[in-house]
């Protein structure tokens, strides 16, 4: 019989350690089956959370070999195949407080979520007595984001969160804000959006971890792009993020390509750049990586590129 070696990170409230279990391999099982089998057949002291076991309650996300998965709908065979191994290491989700073994605490996250007012602020057209009207198309806007099951996989994988727990919002919190910002029934989208901007919206690293691992395939990174657009539409242009994005936007329009030399100045302004980026600039110049005298020429076809800009403006309006 083929055996799997399963190492699980245990935590009893004080000490943490890894415990090894040997489990006979079975075909066609899920990760939740594996955890349940260990608990019921080998070690009833092992703790993890699970409930619905079909990917709707969001209880059972864990890390396996360094990545977050929802245990109930992840086929064991897929995981073994991914890592080409019969050795699995289980750990609780990253970026969460752990209470015991694989069990994490959610309340602090919900507390944090209240920053974005994660509830509808009803618009004046609706009432408790008659509800709202909302078009099918407008409903479609909130269809994907309301798939979120608060499993925490996105937060566990988020690279910004890993180094900025206090400042940055978990992708599922951004999703919740997005969900009400685009909900036509909401009467005060700016009340959800402002806190998003104030909580490091521009620090998303574009690493695509959240969107790549979300078990509900919610387009989280598209949402972040939307949130950024929305803050800029609100006039929030005087920040590094917006200025950085506009540097690219404008360079492509003017020349077709990025002017790397000017990028810091466009993003941070001359003074800030002089204060913080001088050593960087000097070492770049020294290695020939920046040539302050080199200004990119306009590409051939720049007129056509500008037509695309014009057309995109037409499409927007």
């Amino acid at each position: 019989m083929e055996m799997m070696t399963v190492k699980i990170k245990r935590f009893d409230g004080r000490n943490s350690y890894y415990q090894k279990y040997e489990v006979p391999y079975e075909k066609g099982k899920t990760i939740l089956w594996l955890l349940t089998t260990i608990r019921e057949e080998q070690d009833p002291t092992l703790n993890f959370t699970s409930a619905c076991r079909h990917a709707i309650c969001g209880s059972c996300a864990v890390q396996i070999n360094g990545n977050a998965f929802l245990a109930c709908n992840t086929p064991l065979d897929d995981v073994l195949d991914t890592y080409k191994t019969m050795n699995l290491t289980f750990e609780p989700l990253k970026n969460f407080e752990v209470i015991k073994d694989l069990v994490i605490v959610w309340e602090p996250k919900m507390e944090k979520m209240t920053k974005v007012k994660p509830w509808i602020i009803p618009g004046e057209e609706g009432s408790k007595e008659i509800g709202f009207l909302q078009s099918e198309e407008d409903f479609q806007q909130i269809a994907a984001p309301t798939d979120c099951i608060l499993c925490g996989v996105c937060a566990s994988e988020c690279n910004q969160l890993a180094v900025n727990q206090d400042g940055y919002l978990e992708p599922f919190i951004l999703n919740k804000a997005y969900r009400y910002i685009v909900d036509t029934r909401d009467g005060a989208p700016e009340q959800h959006l402002k806190p998003v901007l104030e909580n490091d919206l521009w620090k998303c690293l574009h690493c695509m971890q959240c969107v790549s691992q979300c078990p509900k395939t919610i387009p989280l990174t598209d949402q972040i792009a939307f949130l950024r657009s929305a803050t800029m539409a609100m006039g929030e242009l005087d920040n590094q993020g917006a200025k950085h994005a506009y540097a690219f936007h404008d360079d492509v329009k003017n020349k077709g390509r990025l002017n790397e030399t000017m990028l810091p100045i466009k993003t941070d302004g001359l003074v800030q750049t002089a204060l913080t980026k001088i050593p960087f600039a000097l070492r770049m110049v020294k290695k020939g990586k920046i040539n302050p005298l080199h200004m990119p020429k306009q590409i051939s076809g720049i007129q056509e590129v500008r037509k695309l800009y014009e057309y995109a403006e037409e499409v927007k309006s």
Partner: peptide
């Protein structure tokens, strides 16, 4: 000949359609 910047994962923050258009080009 005449390629443009891909947008470097920034232009879609300003205009998603534009980002698609320049890369379509």
């Amino acid at each position: 000949n005449g390629w443009t910047c891909c947008g470097a994962s920034h232009i879609q923050d300003i205009d998603n359609f534009l980002s698609t258009s320049i890369n379509a080009r």
